[in-house]
Design a protein around this nucleic acid. Structure first.
Length: 599
RNA sequence: GACCCCGUAGCUCAACCGGAUAGAGCAUCCGCCUUCUAAGCGGACGGUUGCAGGUUCGAGUCCUGCCGGGGUCGCCA
């Protein structure tokens, strides 16, 4: 089961090989000139250059070798040596039938599945998610689904930021605000003996009643600001952080509550966005690994003292810039975020043991990851190429700067979703869509439209570039938008429902009309879009395909009546329509976009 | 200052190891609903790919320089 492009590429590769040239010259691409051909091969030009031969002559030789191929209706040499291929109607019908019968809608599996870990989302304790988390979550989720669809064993890890200085800050902030909590937990130092289940339940009840995510979200920024301005306050927080990490029991209880209450709220928010993690391992989980790891680094001679800190030098001969060392232990003796990252790599090596770990994190941290990855290689925790930073640009406001609210604050993700959902309701009403739906179904549709709006807008751009958030444009039902794609999917669903009511059954595919031909070729292009997206960790190739497919279908829908066609034609077109729907939904599912039944 | 990314139609973006006539969407204009969801489809208009050189039969793509924008440059993550 392969796409036409690959199959034809193999045939051409053989022809090149018979001519004594590398089979890789047979690489086939979609035609630049759809008026002339379906596919083309430019290999004769490069091969002729390499072999010192005439490109047209060589191209003709290769073309002649394919002249009798029954899958091809025409093989023609054009221009300086392009080989143009037009697929026969029979082969195209057969390929379309194959895709229609495929539960995977034409998506192939990789030859050698790997274990892949995707590190994305990056939520933190006590911090409600804001727009800064949006891209990592959306892109990471899409990459995870893409790799899984292609057959890899994939774990999506939220890499929960649940450790470090901000925990100390929160502890003292909560103690200051709630003397009763301070009185109950403050004295509990190291000995949990005598702390009964009933005591634990009482503490849990106390904390649940008094401290919610909103409180943490309010306390944290205030405490962080105060620590910056008041060294004594900062020092208290540092001490609390150190005591927490050393295991002070009362602090651990409080910390556990921070952790649990945040995670529950975040999971809900993420889920509403269609983002679900397989693992919520946090920075705290590797805390106990850090001590031994530091020792091991020292023994290996990698750790050196510098300016009062302990560092691992990672600069290499031939570096164009000065690559800073990894700061493992600060001059105050504490672990840095790079330390935690390194320990996390070690932990993953011991547990999931991924062949590839992808870090879906803001592009601005590229240098940091370069340093960490080099240190991991030096320490023997990973080999070159096993760790990769999948960076992305920022989502900007109309001013071209990272998105802020009108007041200049950071927009919470929940508010962004609510804003987009409100716009979706408005647009649905404007369009007179969804009027027949029950209120609950309407809300469900509005949320799906909102998620499609946000995600498609993000994923249709190459991840590396920044983009300007423009709700008016993104939420439009016209053009290259999420809502347009949902609309197309819903139209097909409606059509198929109607066909079923009429008792019209799908039948064998027989490509005849140009619009059918185009649709079949679009369906065939799915696999290549997936492969491209997979290789480059760039979901926009899938988004691009989804859009092209929807548009090609719409053209077909307009040009080819289905329910009113003669039975055989109707059967063929119904099968094509069902295949298009399944593939569109599969593509949208990779992007993390769900389609409603009606709108 | 050093290094990295970006600069493509009026606007927002694509362009598959260097290939034919650089493609979409929005906006503007012209057509198409007694027919399956017209929030659709077809067509038109729109380009010195930031500038200047170089390599090549061929450059948006590779190399050099310059201009403009963004980012990063150890004890916050």
């Amino acid at each position: 089961m392969s796409d036409l492009r690959s199959v034809l590429g193999e045939a051409l590769g053989e022809a090149f090989a018979r001519a004594g040239l590398a089979a890789s010259f047979g690489r086939v691409t979609a035609s630049d000139r759809p008026d002339l051909a379906d596919f083309q091969c430019n290999g004769a030009l490069a091969a002729a250059k390499a072999a010192g031969r005439n490109p047209r002559e060589l191209g003709q030789q290769v073309a002649d070798a394919l002249a009798s191929d029954s899958r091809l209706e025409a093989v023609a040499l054009a221009g300086p040596g392009f080989i143009n291929l037009k697929v026969s109607t029979g082969a195209l019908s057969a390929r379309a039938a194959e895709i229609a019968a495929d539960p995977r809608a034409g998506a192939a599996l990789v030859d050698a599945p790997r274990r892949v870990l995707i590190d994305y989302g990056g939520p933190n304790v006590a911090k409600a998610m804001h727009v800064g988390h949006l891209r990592s979550s959306i892109i990471g989720e899409a990459v995870k689904r893409l790799y899984r669809l292609r057959g890899d064993e994939v774990i999506g890890d939220a890499h929960f930021g649940d450790w470090g200085f901000q925990m100390g800050l929160l502890i003292i902030a909560v103690f200051d605000e709630h003397p009763d909590i301070a009185a109950r937990l403050g004295p509990l130092e190291t000995d949990p003996a005598g702390f009964s289940d009933a005591d634990r339940a009482a503490v849990d009840a106390l904390l649940s009643a008094k401290i919610g995510l909103d409180d943490l979200d309010r306390l944290y920024p205030a405490a962080a600001a105060r620590a910056k301005a008041e060294p004594p306050y900062r020092d208290r927080a540092r001490r609390a952080t150190a005591e927490l990490q050393e295991g002070r029991f009362g602090y651990r209880l409080l910390w556990r509550h921070f952790h649990d209450v945040t995670r529950a709220a975040l999971e809900r928010d993420f889920h509403a966005l269609g983002v679900d993690f397989d693992s919520w391992k946090g920075e705290s989980d590797v805390n106990d690994l850090i001590g031994p790891m530091v020792e091991a680094l020292r023994k290996k001679g990698l750790l050196v003292a510098d300016e009062g800190a302990q560092i691992v030098r990672v600069a290499r001969e031939g570096d164009k810039r000065e690559v800073p060392p990894l700061l493992v232990v600060s001059s105050e003796g504490s672990a840095m975020y790079g330390t935690t990252d390194l320990a996390t790599i070690l932990d993953r090596r011991h547990t999931f043991d991924p062949a590839l770990a992808l870090y879906v994190v803001d592009q601005r941290q590229a240098d940091h990851f370069e340093t960490v990855f080099r240190a991991a290689e030096l320490a023997g925790y990973a080999r070159a190429g096993e760790l990769e930073h999948v960076g992305f640009g920022t989502m900007n406001g109309p001013d071209g700067k990272p998105f802020k609210t009108r007041e200049g604050g950071i927009l919470k993700l929940r508010d962004l979703i609510e804003m987009t959902t409100a716009k979706a309701r408005e647009r649905l009403h404007e369009a007179g869509l969804g009027g027949a739906l029950e209120p609950q179904a309407f809300e469900d549709t509005a949320l799906k439209v909102a998620v499609a709006t946000l995600k498609f807008a993000d994923l249709s751009n190459f991840r590396g570039t920044s983009y300007v958030f423009d709700l008016e444009r993104f939420s439009s039902f016209e053009g290259k938008t999420g809502p347009y794609l949902l609309y197309q999917a819903v139209r097909v669903k409606s059509l198929l429902r109607k066909a079923e009511e009429d008792g019209a059954a799908p039948g064998p595919i027989a490509i005849a009309e140009p619009a059918e031909r185009e649709l079949a070729l679009a369906l065939d292009g799915f696999e290549h879009a997936l492969a491209e997206a997979y290789e480059k960790k760039a979901p926009h190739f899938v988004a691009e395909h989804a859009y092209r497919l929807a548009q090609t279908f719409s053209k077909f829908y307009a040009a080819c009546p289905i329910l009113t066609a003669p039975q055989a034609v109707r059967g063929s077109r119904l099968t094509l329509a069902a295949a298009a729907l399944r593939q569109l939904q599969t593509a949208l599912d990779v992007l993390g976009i769900a389609t409603p039944e009606r709108m």
